[in-house]
Design a protein around this nucleic acid. Structure first.
Length: 207
DNA sequence: CGTATTTGACCAGCGC
DNA sequence: GCGCTGGTCAAATACG
């Protein structure tokens, strides 16, 4: 409950529009139409220039627990706030479609393909946002050209291989970049008291 | 005392 | 092949 309140406070601090104007610094920023909710967000391609692997990565933004209610009424149900596709993200887009649509099972690891990865950015004084799941920190690393370390977390649930990375934006340390990799195979570890049905549906997709 | 976090070591992938 | 870098492991440490 304490963390939940913290999360909401962070959302209130979020700056409408221009939210992703500087990340990644050398990357093309994609735009999306206004989202019709209280928190305006943009999606961007995070084939991160600081990551020498430059992996194709699908990036999108999800509703906070607080905004799921609004989404439920505005859009007929909780869903992604925005989504962009780049030419380099074809595979990830396909994975995402599976998440959103037919919900195929067990497609992540065969053929050695990568887990779907999602990233969002929040202005926050704390690094770890409460997303309803329990995480265990397993590493921390100072990455090149940044003064803030990157933290690595794994979902504590058995058989759930979802990971997330948390780092602060070099250009603006107030901004927290959270990158999720993989899909949860379970519900959140704590109850979100209201709108449980729709929330659990969304959480089964991502976190 | 059990669990979570910290942190140095190690490993793999990539570019030169 | 070598060095650099990001990601992970695991022993040590901190914390409740």
């Amino acid at each position: 409950m304490q963390n939940q309140g913290l999360f909401e406070e962070q959302q209130e601090m979020a700056t409408p529009m221009g939210f992703f104007s500087t990340f990644p610094p050398n990357n093309n920023i994609t735009s999306c139409p206004p989202l019709g909710c209280h928190q305006s967000l943009k999606a961007f391609d995070i084939a991160a220039p600081d990551h020498h692997h430059a992996l194709p990565t699908e990036t999108l933004l999800l509703s906070s627990p607080k905004h799921k209610e609004h989404l439920a009424s505005d859009f007929g149900g909780p869903r992604l706030l925005s989504l962009q596709r780049s030419s380099a993200n074809f595979w990830a887009w396909g994975e995402l479609n599976e998440c959103l649509g037919s919900k195929k099972n067990g497609v992540d690891d065969h053929l050695g393909v990568r887990e779907p990865r999602f990233c969002f950015k929040t202005m926050s004084e704390v690094d770890v946002l409460d997303d309803g799941y329990k995480w265990r920190k397993y590493g921390q690393k100072v990455v090149k050209n940044t003064q803030h370390p990157r933290s690595y977390y794994r979902c504590t649930q058995d058989n759930c291989r979802v990971k997330k990375r948390v780092e602060r934006l070099a250009e603006d340390p107030r901004m927290v970049i959270t990158t999720y990799e993989g899909r949860h195979v379970h519900s959140p570890s704590h109850d979100l008291d209201d709108s449980q049905t729709s929330d659990s549906q969304l959480n089964n997709f991502f976190w």
